[in-house]
Amino acid sequence: MIIFLSCIILFLIGLYAIVTKRNLLKIVIGFALVEYAINLLFALIGFRSGMLAPIITQVDAPHRFVDPIPQALVLTAIVIALGTTALMLTVVLRIYNRYKTFDIAEIRKLKG
């Protein structure tokens, strides 16, 4: 329970950066933190104490594995997170090249 709550705290730190920061790069960092928090929560939910990683090494041995499904879901999500982060950084780079600042308040003033 406490372990799950620490993931929620990481999520809230990321959300804090997204909502209240005025620097565009800090907002992208907040998105990355939220992604880590959700991936970690999934992997922790699938854990069973004393069990092994879900790799079969002997055909006839009894299967004592942790849950493979959350791991499969997170595996695709990690690579998607990299793609979305790269796309966000591209937009941020273009905005900086146009306005020469990361401050979203300044960018709002310079609109047009």
Partner: peptide, 10 residues
């Protein structure tokens, strides 16, 4: 993103 030697002008 990282390797091009150009800057954007617009």
């Amino acid at each position: 993103l990282a390797a091009v030697k150009y800057v954007m002008t617009d």
